[in-house]
Design a protein around this nucleic acid. Structure first.
Lengths: 80, 80
DNA sequence: GACAATTTGTCCGTATGTATT
DNA sequence: CAATACATACGGACAAATTGT
């Protein structure tokens, strides 16, 4: 295992943010949508919610994303 | 819920490290032992391995702990 | 080298709680 | 009240690394 799923997801999200595809304040797709999306991107038949959540939760903890219950997950504004 | 289990565990570990009870390089009790320990400390009948792992994994990601497969989890040396 | 025991690492699927619309 | 969406927790399965026999 070169890189576990959750790290690949973190890397992908970071790449999109860095590329400006998802700028600060942008709302990410919902958890359910991201799961379907990364199933294709990671070419796996199964991707558990807990695994995707692991990736997202990690980035929230690191301040790269901001989760708002009931609303969505957003790209954090730069560290002011 | 004032503070979820995994955050209470993080706070407790940080407190022990800060107090010098677990100095840098110290090997933490094994996952199984920590589960039993925190079941008492958090006064809960059940504490899943995944929940404890959440706390530990978070601190590893933040560089406060260092995990070594097959060996154990250690208090990280100061951020040099 | 082979094997078992121990321990951490990843992932699965599900259930329930909480906040927003 | 209902729908949507994130947040926490459960418990188990298997992989991978280390140590000792």
């Amino acid at each position: 295992m070169s890189m576990p799923y959750y790290r690949q997801i973190v890397a992908d999200i970071r790449a999109r943010v860095a590329a400006g595809e998802w700028p600060p304040g942008h709302k990410l797709p919902s958890t359910a949508e991201l799961i379907e999306f990364y199933k294709v991107e990671l070419d796996t038949a199964t991707l558990a919610p807990s695994t995707l959540r692991h990736a997202i939760g990690l980035m929230i903890e690191l301040g790269e994303l901001r989760g708002q219950q009931g609303l969505g997950v957003f790209v954090a504004d730069g560290p002011e």
